[in-house]
């Protein structure tokens, strides 16, 4: 093993994995190096949210977390939410609302919204803003992102199921 190499084990998108890493490698760098390229490197200093992943149910910045901190934790990335062919509910609504322009912020937005919906029953604007305040979008001005998220949140609140995968958002 190369000098300075350590290993870290955690559950990644439901699978137990062990990776070689270095003491100061960032979790984001490890994930991208291992092929989980959905999480983006944006500002690299914990401001923009493009690198957001979920650790033990909480949205965290992959760029401000050493990979070693993930030992024994459960990590989920955007790859666990949906794929291009089979997007998740939030992804469908974002696409349908025209909320995706350059798209760089979207994986992070989806992960923060996912953490919100899993953690809170109350999906009011006030609570939602608390959960979404660590994700920046430089294209849309947020209006369409909020519109899309509101549709998903209201559906959750109303208890109605998500529209089928063939919904208009999935057409591309």
């Amino acid at each position: 093993m190369r000098k300075g190499t350590r290993s870290v084990s955690f559950t990644l998108n439901g699978e137990k994995k062990t990776f070689a890493t270095r003491p100061d490698e960032k979790l984001l760098d490890l994930l991208r190096r291992e092929g989980y390229r959905g999480s983006k490197y944006g500002c690299g200093q914990g401001t923009c949210g493009a690198c957001t992943v979920i650790m033990d149910g909480r949205a965290v910045y992959g760029c401000l977390l050493y990979a070693m901190q993930a030992e024994g934790r459960e990590i989920r990335t955007i790859e666990s939410v949906g794929t291009f062919e089979r997007p998740g509910e939030v992804q469908n609504e974002l696409a349908a609302a025209g909320a995706v322009q350059c798209g760089y912020c979207i994986p992070g937005i989806v992960m923060s919204a996912t953490a919100l919906m899993e953690s809170e029953k109350d999906l009011s604007d006030e609570i939602a803003r608390e959960y979404m305040d660590g994700n920046l979008c430089r294209c849309t001005g947020y209006e369409k992102i909020w519109l899309a998220l509101r549709r998903v949140f209201d559906r959750r609140a109303g208890g109605s199921p998500a529209p089928g995968r063939s919904g208009k958002g999935a057409k591309k």
Binding site: G46, M55, V60, L64, L65, E130, M132, G134
Partner: peptide
């Protein structure tokens, strides 16, 4: 700070 920072 932000939600993601407050989480850690």
């Amino acid at each position: 700070s932000t939600h993601q920072i407050r989480n850690v």
